[in-house]
């Protein structure tokens, strides 16, 4: 493997304003079925990236806190060993990938995911006639009965890699073609995506700085030892009360 890569992301919780732009971008990039009201009421809605909102304090002194949660692409992903058919496994670029064709829908992986970021297709996905041409041709439309989850927009990673190879150049850090849809859509630069094997990438530098002794970085549910490739940077707020949830 020439130029090994390992993809990672940082999420600066301090910057997140909970605008849900990433959710919409993800929805349209990855052909995620439309999560309408009945689906939400059935508790079967799908959002590969979701914004969890926490209220803090009592009225009128109340604050909303947001945290985007999506697949953490763990190095020791609990979902991987339990899949009976290798539908989910770890690839050589540190991504936790889902092979739709192999998936039989046993849902053991969902139960074993402490972040609850894996989504199951309970129904055959349907789009209204007007949206048929909106589907992204680079992404498989999943049938019912299988799992799906955030892929770090692997189709974009693959395409830029392919094009870079064709043109004989290196994949650029921060290339908008490389970045997942959510990163491109984020208005506040909350999400930073890149290759941690490249010491000059923004994400490597952030990781080095923030995961050090006095940095803001942490892993979600770090006590489980799953080794996520997503680093969260905690909120800096002098009014914040007590330790945050994670």
């Amino acid at each position: 493997m020439e130029g090994r890569q390992k993809w990672a992301m940082t999420v600066d919780v301090d910057r997140c304003i909970g605008c849900q732009a990433c959710v919409i971008a993800c929805q349209s990039e990855n052909n995620i079925p439309i999560s309408d009201e009945p689906l939400f009421n059935q508790r079967r809605a799908m959002e590969w990236i979701r914004i969890e909102r926490y209220w803090e304090g009592e009225f009128p002194d109340v604050k909303a806190r947001f945290i985007p949660i999506f697949c953490q692409h763990c190095d020791d992903a609990p979902c991987e060993p339990v899949c009976p058919v290798y539908a989910t496994y770890h690839n050589s670029e540190g991504l936790n990938v889902q092979v739709y064709n192999r998936c039989i829908g046993s849902r053991l992986c969902v139960n074993n995911c402490p972040y609850q970021v894996r989504y199951f297709n309970f129904w055959e996905p349907e789009w209204p006639e007007s949206l048929q041409n909106q589907l992204n041709p680079d992404v498989t439309v999943r049938s019912r009965g299988i799992m799906e989850k955030c892929t770090f927009c692997i189709q974009r990673i693959r395409r830029t890699g392919r094009e870079a190879k064709r043109d004989g150049r290196k994949v650029e850090d921060g290339d908008r073609g490389l970045n997942p849809a959510c990163v491109n859509a984020c208005p506040t630069d909350t999400l930073v995506f890149g290759d941690v094997m490249d010491p000059d990438s923004r994400v490597s530098k952030l990781k080095e700085k923030e995961m050090s002794e006095d940095g803001r970085g942490y892993h979600l549910l770090g006590s489980l030892g799953t080794g996520p490739n997503v680093i969260y940077l905690k909120k800096v707020d002098e009014h914040a009360s007590g330790p945050t949830h994670a």
């Binding site: 969902v110 199951f120 019912r144």
Partner: peptide, 15 residues
């Protein structure tokens, strides 16, 4: 024929 949607399963009650 219809898929697991006809059951009462949901997220997170997958089983």
């Amino acid at each position: 024929n219809k898929g697991l949607g006809v059951t009462g399963l949901n997220r997170p009650v997958m089983w």
